[in-house]
Design a protein around this nucleic acid. Structure first.
Lengths: 147, 147
DNA sequence: TAAGTGAGTGGGAAATAGTGGGAAATTGTA
DNA sequence: TACAATTTCCCACTATTTCCCACTCACTTA
């Protein structure tokens, strides 16, 4: 699969539609799966990727364990299929919009195998809060070098 | 790949384009990957270098760990492919321009396997702030000798 | 010193991407 | 069954990006 990365800022319109950045769009199919992410953002997957991820989650969780049910309810349950319209937009269901706190300005992150959608202010706050954590995580990558 | 070094000062034009210094250009392919660096600068890689680095990062991080997501969002997500136009310029996407605080005067650093792009003022400030840190880091290299 | 070459800068025109809004269709509700 | 509300489809406008070319300045070479 191609790169599928980049950080973009697009506006959610009054009808709850969001343009996918052209650079990401060209590598995505016209039918996608949108769900709640682990932080307060939405995750957008190609159907095959979602299929694989959800199967793996289901395989490692059980109906009879509280923690498992939590995971299933938080990740699997909210998933909805969305279509890319012919101008390259998706319409984000109200429930997901509310949950992620999307107001108008959104940040769209391509993370190689999937896409994240954040409310712009929340994302800035998230980065600010985690700046020092990031720096120490980066130090830990110190072992990685350019060959 | 050849040694890719040198410190250059070029101007970002009003459309967000930056000339790559001719000396670096001749050793770079016409398609490159630009992303956020760990400090407030941009990193520019040849695609193969980036491919290798990003794969190693992705392989050592997980969608389900907070620190991993932070690394992915800060390093992997902002990466975008840029083309060198036939006059040797790259067009720096708005989001990266804003993030690195590039206004007009930019410093371009060749660092052997990759290139850094700094806002001139920020780079000066960075050097000034870290002068004593540099001196002690140099001391630590004491074991290294010529030969 | 003058001409030639190469590097960097700037700007116009065309193409593309993003945004907003109307009309039709669908859904839910009374 | 009729009405209201929401969603979907379609089109138009505007801003941004991309492509192309011209200009200037500095350095080299004759």
């Amino acid at each position: 699969m191609k790169l599928l990365t980049g950080e973009f800022k697009n506006m959610l319109d009054e009808k709850g539609r969001l343009s996918l950045p052209a650079r990401l769009r060209s590598d995505l199919p016209s039918s996608l799966v949108l769900t709640q992410g682990v932080d307060t953002c939405l995750w957008l997957f190609a159907p095959e990727e979602w299929e694989e991820l959800s199967q793996r989650i289901l395989a490692s969780t059980s109906l009879f364990q509280a923690r498992s049910r939590l995971i299933q309810r938080r990740i699997i349950a909210p998933a909805q299929e969305v279509e890319v319209d012919k101008l390259g937009r998706i319409s984000i269901p109200q429930s997901l919009r509310d949950w992620a706190g999307l107001s108008k300005e959104c940040i769209i992150l391509g993370i190689s195998r999937y896409v994240e959608i954040w409310d712009s202010q929340r994302y800035q706050a998230y980065l600010a809060e985690n700046q020092s954590e990031f720096l120490s995580a980066a130090e830990e990558l110190g072992g990685l070098t350019l060959s």
